[in-house]
Design a protein around this nucleic acid. Structure first.
Lengths: 147, 147
DNA sequence: TCAATTTATATCGTTCACGATGCAAAAATA
DNA sequence: TATTTTTGCATCGTGAACGATATAAATTGA
């Protein structure tokens, strides 16, 4: 039939969209006690790897626009997780740094990744398939990020 | 090191989240001319497969909550794509049906899936890997949808 | 039959996500 | 150096997502 392609079942993007939402939902039990959201957790991951970064670098690493990240950081500043200070060489920049609270949260978040992967393995019964998916997703992301 | 797991590079969910966002972005050139968003396109896919469904059925097929779908449908009704009428047997239900405009859009959207998959193949060079990803994503979605 | 519970949808508040636009500082160039 | 362009970030508006809550209708069960 002519419209076979328009069946929901055939759509890869729908699966990515759904899997991403449901997986983010699986973080709730771990992030709610910390009082942070998943995108905020991602910002913390970036800053835990390297503190004191301009907004642009954070946005770039998360493949987000700065107009998404700026309000996110404002909320995180209000929550006492980060500080946003003026750049010294380039005063247009806002350098984002972790507060004491933001630094300390790293230890509390340490186990989250393994909890999540344990959970996924338990739910789906397998691990290997997901590991195999990673380079494919990277290829997709890499290909789509410019265009 | 103790915090190795907290590296962004190691996160599956981050890839899903990013790949989903970027893939949705790739729909823009095709959906913008139709004046619809990606979630609205998903609702249309569901209704094109079967017209006249209650809100709950649509939400269930998209793995969304009704409090996400209701405003979505209200916007689509305002755009003249669907009509929401009271259920006859069960008056609590809202039966969502396609308008003439909504039905006609199907023909205009017919080529979108193949355009997208062509684009992905062109960008990433391969097809097979993505096909192989589908059952894995289905397993993940199936496992996460209840818990 | 009538009260208690469940179900279907809607509303509200908060947080993304992003296109469009604004603005000041830096860089490029005439 | 003066002007133009670019860059970094912020603001605004719209549309998802979703938890919490509300409400009316249907169902259950005492």
């Amino acid at each position: 039939m002519a419209y076979e392609q328009l069946k929901l079942d055939n759509q890869l993007c729908f699966r990515l969209y759904t899997a991403a939402r449901l997986t983010m939902g699986a973080y709730h039990p771990y992030l709610d006690p910390l009082g942070i959201t998943y995108p905020q957790y991602l910002v913390l991951l970036v800053l835990w790897e390297q503190d004191k970064q301009p907004v642009n670098d954070i946005a770039h690493k998360l493949f987000l626009e700065t107009n998404t990240v700026t309000p996110l950081l404002q909320r995180m500043e209000k929550a006492g997780l980060v500080k946003r200070s003026k750049g010294k060489e380039d005063t247009r920049q806002r350098i984002v740094s972790l507060t004491k609270k933001g630094i300390e949260m790293r230890a509390q978040a340490k186990r989250i990744p393994e909890c999540l992967s344990d959970e996924i393995i338990q739910i789906t019964g397998e691990d290997e398939e997901f590991v195999r998916m990673i380079p494919t997703l990277d290829k997709l992301i890499e290909g789509l990020k410019q265009q």
